Simulated assay, not measured.
Amino acid sequence: MPTGMAIRDVREQLFDAADRVLLHSGPSALTSRAVTTEAGCAKGVLHRHFADFDAFLADFVLDRVHRLDERITELHRSVGEESVVDNLAGALTALFGSVAVAIVALVTFRDELRARLRETWPAGVPVLTEAAIGIAAYLAEERTAGRIAPDADVDTLGATLIGTGHLLFADRTGEPPSAEAVRRMVGTVLGGVLSKP
Results as ranks from 00 to 15, higher is better:
residue 6 A to N: 09
residue 9 D to M: 07
residue 12 E to F: 13
residue 17 A to M: 07
residue 21 V to N: 10
residue 26 G to L: 09
residue 29 A to Y: 14
residue 29 A to K: 13
residue 30 L to E: 03
residue 32 S to I: 01
residue 41 C to R: 03
residue 45 V to Y: 08
residue 45 V to H: 10
residue 48 R to N: 10
residue 49 H to K: 14
residue 54 D to F: 09
residue 64 R to H: 04
residue 64 R to E: 11
residue 65 V to K: 02
residue 68 L to I: 02
residue 71 R to L: 13
residue 78 S to H: 09
residue 79 V to C: 07
residue 80 G to Y: 12
residue 86 D to I: 15
residue 88 L to F: 08
residue 90 G to D: 09
residue 91 A to C: 13
residue 99 V to N: 08
residue 103 I to D: 01
residue 104 V to P: 01
residue 105 A to L: 03
residue 106 L to V: 15
residue 106 L to K: 13
residue 109 F to K: 04
residue 111 D to N: 08
residue 113 L to P: 10
residue 116 R to I: 02
residue 117 L to I: 01
residue 117 L to P: 04
residue 121 W to Q: 12
residue 123 A to V: 07
residue 131 A to E: 04
residue 132 A to D: 01
residue 132 A to V: 00
residue 136 A to K: 10
residue 139 L to Y: 07
residue 144 T to Y: 06
residue 144 T to W: 03
residue 148 I to N: 10
residue 149 A to L: 05
residue 149 A to Q: 07
residue 152 A to Q: 06
residue 157 L to N: 10
residue 158 G to Q: 03
residue 159 A to R: 03
residue 165 G to M: 02
residue 171 D to H: 07
residue 173 T to M: 06
residue 173 T to W: 11
residue 176 P to H: 14
residue 177 P to Y: 06
residue 182 V to S: 01
residue 182 V to P: 07
residue 188 T to F: 09
residue 189 V to P: 00
residue 190 L to T: 13
residue 193 V to Q: 10
residue 195 S to M: 09
residue 196 K to W: 02
